[in-house]
């Protein structure tokens, strides 16, 4: 097994390779505005560092969000196209699951990322591997008040509730490890398709405005 995983649903542009045993290489750059420029070079870096060629990859995994859409699409489009040239499957894993997995927590918590517009993307977890229900987008003040929080959205809006040593971002090493674990267990992974949670901002226009008074 050789899993190539990457995530572009947060400001972190992150790629990693996992051979079923361990993370062979990981490359992460935090830059919210350059997902399109940074992703392929990150993939090239991890291939070089791991000393493998793309042809050896057996599955491509992208974080499927939720996350700001423009960046999110870069990862998913790259996964779909790359996998099709390699003749291997492209999978999507919820970005919040990677944040949760890396936390290593064994008690309930919320994974929270920044959704911009003063909102957060979040989901509730029983432990690092077990999500409870679908992800949502809400105002940070409307989050459940009990459990501890992990993720950059928590650091931004509720730093006092942050769990210790929890990651801010869905680092691809964690995403790849989670994918490898699920694949080894024979779990069905979802397709590399986006979780948007919001509709496009667009209004159906009324009658044309008069130009004469």
């Amino acid at each position: 097994m050789l899993v190539l995983a990457f995530d572009t649903a947060t400001p972190a542009v992150t790629a990693a390779l996992h051979d079923g045993e361990r993370v062979l290489a990981e490359s992460t750059t935090v830059d919210a505005r350059r997902h399109g420029e940074l992703l392929i070079p990150a993939v090239e870096i991890v291939l070089r560092e791991a000393g493998v060629v793309l042809r050896e990859v057996t599955a491509v995994v992208a974080g499927s969000g939720p996350g700001p859409y423009t960046g999110l699409r870069v990862g998913l489009m790259t996964a779909q196209a790359l996998a099709s040239t390699l003749g291997v499957p492209a999978y999507g894993i919820c970005t919040l699951d990677a944040v949760a997995y890396a936390s290593g927590l064994s008690e309930p918590f919320l994974a929270v990322t920044d959704a911009r517009r003063k909102e957060v993307f979040w989901a509730s977890y029983a432990d690092a591997r077990t999500r409870l229900g679908d992800p949502s987008v809400d105002r940070p003040q409307d989050l459940p008040t009990e459990p501890p929080l992990v993720g950059a959205g928590a650091r931004l809006y509720a730093p006092d509730r942050l769990a210790e040593n929890a990651p801010d971002y869905p680092f691809a090493g964690a995403l790849a490890a989670l994918a490898a674990e699920r694949l080894a267990a024979g779990d069905e992974l979802g397709p590399a398709r986006p979780i948007y949670l919001r509709r496009p901002d667009a209004k159906v226009p009324g009658a044309p405005k008069k130009v004469t008074a």
Binding site: V43, L82, S84
Partner: peptide, 17 residues
């Protein structure tokens, strides 16, 4: 911008792959 980026991401992946 956002539309261009989807095509550019795909093209890079095809090129690399």
């Amino acid at each position: 911008a956002g539309a261009l980026l989807v095509g550019v991401a795909a093209a890079k992946a095809y090129s690399l792959g």
